[in-house]
Every structure is written in C-alpha cells, then in structure tokens.
Design a protein around this nucleic acid. Sequence first.
DNA 1: TTCCCCCTCCCCGGAACTGGCGAGGGCCGG
DNA 2: CCGGCCCTCGCCAGTTCCGGGGAGGGGGAA
Lengths: 242, 242
Amino acid sequence: MGVVESNPSTGGFLEELDRAERREQLQAVSENFRDKLRIRHLIYHWVSADGEQYGCGTYDPAWVQRYIDKGYLRIDPVIQGCYQHFHPVDWKQLDWSSRAARAFHRDAMAHGLGNQGYSVPLRGPNGQFALFTVNHACDDDTWDDFTSQNRGDLILLAHYFNQKALELEPGRQPEPAQPLSPREIEAMTLLAVGNSRAQVAEALSISEHTLRVYIESARFKLGAMNTTHAVARALSRGLIVV
Amino acid sequence: MGVVESNPSTGGFLEELDRAERREQLQAVSENFRDKLRIRHLIYHWVSADGEQYGCGTYDPAWVQRYIDKGYLRIDPVIQGCYQHFHPVDWKQLDWSSRAARAFHRDAMAHGLGNQGYSVPLRGPNGQFALFTVNHACDDDTWDDFTSQNRGDLILLAHYFNQKALELEPGRQPEPAQPLSPREIEAMTLLAVGNSRAQVAEALSISEHTLRVYIESARFKLGAMNTTHAVARALSRGLIVV
DNA sequence: TTCCCCCTCCCCGGAACTGGCGAGGGCCGG
DNA sequence: CCGGCCCTCGCCAGTTCCGGGGAGGGGGAA
C-alpha cells in the first residue's frame, strides 16, 4: 500500500514520489528473482509503440535505450511471436530468418544478452500487452530443462509483475474505455475486415448516412482522428475482433 | 497427442472424432479437479458474442442452455467485471446492484450454483477472451481462505484449460504472415495511430506518392482490400504495435 | 416521468484516398 | 552477374471519405 493510497487521481507530488519508490522496489524484486533462478536476465515490459513505455528488469540500461532508439520493437521476433500465442514461447521456436532479425540478434548478444530466452505473453484490459522474459546463456538441453521445470513459476511470476505494473500505472487510458454500442461494433468490425462504407451499410441494411453516424460516433468515443485510426484503436483495445 | 496429429489441416472425419474425444477428456479433467478442490463447480468457457461458443465444466447443462438462451452473457456481472481486470476476481467484489443482475443471480442460485465464485480472466491472441471459474456454497471467510490459498494453482489451472481449448479449436490459422519491409511497417504504424497520408509522408520525409507505393505494397502482402483493412490485419497479426 | 443514449434518415462541399500508368538507383543472395 | 526486392519520385482521373449541419422515434435509468 502506498503512502497516498487514499487519492489515486491527484497525480500530485507525493503520489509521484511513492510511485517512484514502488518502481524501485519492483526493480529490486526482479534482480532478486534473477539471482534466485540463477539466470542472466529477467525482464518485464509493456509492448506499445506510443510514448507511455514501462518496464523493469536486469537488462543493461544501454541496451534498453538502444532497443527504444533503434525501434527494435518493430523488428524483435519475440514480440511478433508472442503476439500470436497464448502460452509462453521459447526463443528457439521463433523465426529469426529475416535479415533485420539476425542483425537484431547479433546486437542483442553484443549487449550482454544470453542466447537462450523464454517469454510469457501477458494481456490485460484495454488491449494491454506485455512480456515477461527470462534470458540466459547456456546450451539447449540445459535451457529446456530449466524452462520445463519452472514453467508454472514463471507464469505466476509474470502475473505478479503484470499486476504490480498495472497498479503502478493505473490510468493509462485517459478515456476509461467507453464502450461501443452494438451497431458501432458491427460497423467497426465490418470495416476492419475490408468492407467499404457502402458494403457495410448494405450488410447492416441501413443507409450509408446512418452508417456514417456510427463511424463518427465510434471515432469520437475512441478519440480517433479518422476511420483507420478508430478501427486500429478498437482492435488494440479488444473492442472488436477479426 | 491425438490420433491424427500428423495432418492438422484436413478438418476431416478422423480429426473431428479425435477432437470430440479430447473434449470429453477435458470435461473429465474438470470434474476431477472439482472433486480434488472439493468445490461445487469448476468451469472454463470462452466469452464471445458470435456463435463460436466453447466451454466445459460441471454446470448443469440446463443452466448452460438457459444462460445462452436468455442472453445472460450480456448482463452477467462476472463477465463485465472480468473484462476490466487482469487479475482474478472474487464475485463478491462485483457490482450486483442492477435489477437485471439481481434477477440473474437468483436464477443462477435456483440452478444449483453456489453463492461464492472466483473467476480468472484469460486473454489470448486475436482478442480471444475466456473465463475460468470456480464456484461453491459457503460463508465468506471460508471462501476467502480457499481463494487466497489456491490462487496460484487456480491461475495455472486456468492457463491449462485455456491452452487445451486453444489446441482443440485451432480456429483460423493465420496465413504465413509475409513480412513487411521496414518502411512499410513504419507507414502502417503511423497510419494506425491516426496520421493522414500527408502526415505520414512528411514524418517519413518522403513524397506522398512514395508513401502510396508502400501502402499498396503492404496492402498486397496482407491481402487487404483497402488501407483500413491492411492496418487491421497488420495489427491483428502483430506486425505492427500501437 | 424525464433525460439521455441508441437507432434511423437526409444534404452538401471539400478533402482524402484509390487505381493505373510511368521512371531510376541500391542492395542482396543465388 | 543477374534477378528480385526495397526505396524513391511523377501525373491524372475517378471514387470515397470527412465534417458540419438537422430531425424524429424508442427504450432504459434516475
């Protein structure tokens, strides 16, 4: 419990101080677990392109900065791989064949990462997506033993970190996920799968003008600049599914 | 491993048979765990509005059918509550104040559910959302003891069920995602966050015509009908991150 | 009951997007 | 070394989308 738990919405000085303190605690926890598990690295971080980054772990800060600066988020095969899976992913299973991926891999090795990795995908409300990763340098068999023996603990550890992080960064979305109306959801979904406005209107058996009202309404609720933006937000917040 | 593991893409008779068999196994597993935990019910089910329902557990089939028929999916406070949380939710914490919710609660009690419940939200790729729930009839203190002692196991159990269910219903296997070029990724990302073509072109310091080539190329690679469709596909395949 | 949201329909002008045509240089793997 | 992919730029015409109005009926919540 924080010292200013009573009023989480002020965003004031004390709260910021408290948050910084709790961040440091979480950082210490990650180092602690790394040592207990006897691995080289242990990391938790959100996956999101916009500024609101958050992460903690034992990576070299220089590597973290480099990762951000060079936009490795868009190249890292771990991200893409985990995005398509529910269960944890061993880095060996991923596709490292592309040129950019190999260059990224070399760079990561050069910054102190081990050759073995195991990442747990985490998904939260509003389309939040995060990764919990353990990293080490060893041969394949040793690593496979480690991951299969600690799989359950790693999942629970991932949950622990994600929960702490969510508590730390409470209102990541200024708009508290205003729900879309059924019609709006239908409209956005049909747009997301490639229909034009005219097609959507026909599919919903409404006039194109009415459809436009839905799109505009959804765009407003989602704080989106245009239709593409609105569909992207609806998708990434889990409001629609394709 | 199933009897027709060798060819998962046929969708043929044998595979269907195998799947039915594995479903029954999972059903048996849920009854087994219910007895081990000494609780009244244990249930896993997807939450999705469209027809593709799936679930297994120990509820009375009559209650399940009633739940579907009466559209309780839309008023069940458990659904609403879990949608907004990452961590497991005790039913006591939920908002049962609306009239519809109270009627639902009475109906559930009448169909053999206990007064206590604890639900673990589960999120998978492509916006999949599922719940793993344990239910029992006892007083609050007993239930709180139970949940706090078994929290970790329940989370892992939830993961187990979700993973089995995902294996059972492979759904639409994402087509081998043809990779986008770095420039295409940048373009799609900037479009996804609300920039117009002109803005994207300026941000990338290229002419708008060049940008159009990227968009068209990405659209082609993704098999998309238009820009919105392309952005949606890139998002749901994890090729870009917003 | 009253208010608010949801659903439905309509006009218009300007801005943005789409499709099809063309061009050239650079870098990599076979 | 050649083919293929990536990056860059250009024009034109047609289609679609956007933003700003207005208007009415129905249903659920306070």
